[in-house]
Design a protein around this nucleic acid. Structure first.
Lengths: 194, 194
DNA sequence: TAACCAACCGAATGATCGGTCGGTTTTTTT
DNA sequence: AAAAAAACCGACCGATCATTCGGTTGGTTA
């Protein structure tokens, strides 16, 4: 692996575990075996490095979901939504570091002043919400979903799923057993009262 | 106001806005007008200061919810839950700094090694989940709520509400218009399929 | 082979960090 | 009023921070 990629990989892990301010270039240098000079040869500063990491996070997450969207196109709307949720929960487990970066506060703080950062975050959330909404829309058409406002419902649904992932990450409570309850809640929410 | 309280108040604001590592004692000294020596006279170090802040956050949030629980005891279960959600959303707006600290990552990281920190966080989440669950239990008894697992449902409900608050804080999307959708989702979720 | 260039190195830099300490002022106690 | 205690001050400390810079290396091009 090239030094540049090694730096990016380790930076992803450090940023996710220790945050932006908690990650030191000296530490990164030790772990990767690259001199500090080398790091700054490839990335113009710490913020630039973080943006590259965020860009990779964006691309890998979007890539995963795009690939998932290609499968099982024959399912009913409600089944697609349930499939997306299951995929989301699974991905949050297998791409822990990437999701942890998104669950930290720093990116959103940086997004206030840095348009590149903001753009990455918007791309990710737009993609995720679109996927949820698409399933809902399809469900409305085939009768498997009964809601009035698809976009808002997609947001509420996303907030719920992502909230569960967070509860699980924080480990204040064991939320690992909540997946079934989450699915039940999803079905009730979409099939609607009455 | 005493210097100690001024330090605590400013520390709450700084920790919530800039995080633990992003908050400097020199900055805190400038803002409060207290010399750095004074800060360390009242708090033995930065971590201790943070724990005091977190303790205040815990006490004020628990106090607010305890007070809210004393009101409208005649309501049906479903109405109580809806009232709690409305109160939660309202509180997240009026106690922005306190909620922001809870939505940051640092406290949960610190909780892994610091039992005092962990205890504060557990108190808060236990209280909140108990309140949600209590409403659900009452609803099951009076027939206004139909779910099978009250505790798990309380967690899912909490994840949903807190997720909406986060979406609103991050401001990647305007979630301010989601409160109605959230209430609809809550009702569907509790009144059940069929 | 000479010139070039990107990758790489690590010592050095100034700024900033959390934290200390000896001393002064203010408040409380007696 | 005297003494004790608590609050407060700010210069100072060593460590660590992100970043710089002059120089070396190894492969590619002219």
């Amino acid at each position: 692996m090239s030094k540049r990629n090694a730096i990016l990989a380790s930076a992803t892990r450090l940023f996710s575990r220790n945050g932006f301010q908690g990650t030191g270039m000296a530490e990164l240098s030790t772990i990767t075996g690259a001199a500090t000079g080398t790091i700054f040869h490839h990335f113009k500063n710490k913020e630039d490095l973080f943006l590259q990491v965020l860009n990779d996070v964006k691309e890998s997450i979007l890539d995963q979901f795009d690939r998932h969207q290609q499968t099982r196109r024959d399912q009913k709307g409600i089944e697609r939504v349930e499939g997306v949720i299951a995929f989301y929960l699974n991905l949050a487990g297998s791409m822990e570091d990437q999701f942890l970066i998104l669950h930290r506060h720093y990116p959103y703080q940086m997004a206030k002043t840095n348009p590149v950062c903001r753009s990455h975050l918007e791309s990710i959330y737009t993609c995720l919400l679109d996927i949820f909404e698409e399933g809902i829309q399809k469900g409305i058409q085939d009768g498997s979903v009964a809601v009035e406002a698809p976009r808002q419902t997609a947001m509420v649904l996303f907030a719920m799923v992502d909230g569960i992932v967070r509860l699980n990450t924080y480990r204040v409570y064991d939320a690992g057993t909540l997946y079934d309850s989450l699915m039940v809640a999803c079905r009730r929410l979409l099939k609607g009262g009455r």
